[in-house]
């Protein structure tokens, strides 16, 4: 069946014949490799995207059920040479080590700041509680987000 996705503002049609996740379609069909594939169980948050503005794990969304919905991936947040302020803050605060978890944290962080421009430290931690970093860069990640809060 044909599925119409609105990915980062662009309308894209894909053919889906299995109960594949949106994560698989983004990566394998659309070549959007920023959204990472790790646990496929909703545990790690590395596949985080915005679906009609909600922060969700794309591994838990059936691609066919995303027909006509708006999808924002990390590629829709910033691009090479045109980083989002939060991406710049991640670089400046050493919030990136191996970088595998970074796209998921950026999507979750951007979503947080959209919903709540002046989060407390507790609210930042809560908002990131669905994202795991195996290099344990949480301090840097929290400081990167905090830097944008103080700037507002």
């Amino acid at each position: 069946m044909n599925v119409r996705l609105i990915v980062n503002g662009r309308t894209i049609n894909v053919e889906v014949t299995t109960p594949l996740s949106l994560l698989q379609v983004l990566r394998e069909e659309l070549g959007l490799l920023g959204t990472k594939d790790a646990c496929e169980q909703g545990e790690c948050g590395s596949c985080s995207i915005l679906l009609n503005g909600d922060l969700v794990c794309s591994c838990l969304v059936m691609a066919a059920d995303a027909d006509d919905l708006e999808v924002t991936t990390v590629e829709g947040i910033g691009t090479d040479g045109n980083l989002h302020p939060l991406q710049r803050a991640f670089v400046e605060h050493g919030a990136v080590q191996c970088g595998f978890c970074t796209p998921g944290f950026i999507v979750a962080g951007v979503h947080l700041l959209d919903q709540n421009p002046v989060p407390t430290s507790g609210e930042i931690r809560e908002a990131l509680s669905g994202n795991l970093c195996r290099c344990t860069g949480y301090g840097g990640i929290e400081r990167a987000i905090q830097s944008l809060v103080e700037g507002t």
């Binding site: 299995t18 109960p19 996740s21 496929e40 169980q41 591994c59 838990l60 969304v61 059920d65």
Partner: peptide
């Protein structure tokens, strides 16, 4: 049919290959 709500239980099974629905009814 598989009745699909938020998918947070169902898709874990689908991704693991434990569930392979032929017909899905989405409640979205």
């Amino acid at each position: 049919a598989l009745v699909l709500a938020g998918g947070t239980d169902t898709m874990v099974l689908v991704n693991a290959g434990a569930l392979r629905p032929e017909y899905v009814i989405s409640l979205r």
